[in-house]
Amino acid sequence: MTVRFEFRDVRVDGDDGPIVKGFFAVVPAEGLTAIVGPSGAGKTTLLRLLNRLDDPDEGVVLFEGRDVRDYDVLELRRRVQSVGQVPVTFPGTVRDNVGADTPALLERVGLNPALASREADRLSVGEAQRMALARSLALRPDVLALDEPTSALDTSSKGGIERLIRELADSGLTVVMVTHDPRQAELADQVVEVRPLPRPEPGIDDR
């Protein structure tokens, strides 16, 4: 098994104490890895360490054996693409968002290539989420880091995105997906569980 990421004794502090603490885990290079746990356990926080939107306050995150902080951050982010819960569309058309290879990329994520000339903010949420994936794939990443990629979608578009994620993982990309849905975790080849830290007051980080 080739290791893509390793979390070593990671602690990340929030405003009211640590969000995650003493966290160890390994993400293999092959297939789909699900990060599961109840909301508030720090799953999103861990995902944000992979492309350095956040840095740990203690411990290290290794990418292919090297501390993520040793990479040029922009090159790291090109290789480790992250897509958020709610798709973000930039002003302009789908083509403006995705770039040169738009038709082929749209096809790859299961969208009609004719959508290339559509204004991006007129896509449905499901279409926008697929477009966001296409925009990430345009950078030819090695890793896709997905944060609850179906949480903003209705049931009918959920299944389609899940199949797409599975396909992308099978095509050789490392896919890391945060989910709180145990059923969705069953899609994964391996599961990393995040346990919530005991808190003095429940719900203090719900914001």
Binding site: R77, G84, S136
Partner: peptide
């Protein structure tokens, strides 16, 4: 952050 994630 979406822009930063796209390596901008």
């Amino acid at each position: 952050e979406a822009r930063l994630s796209l390596a901008q």
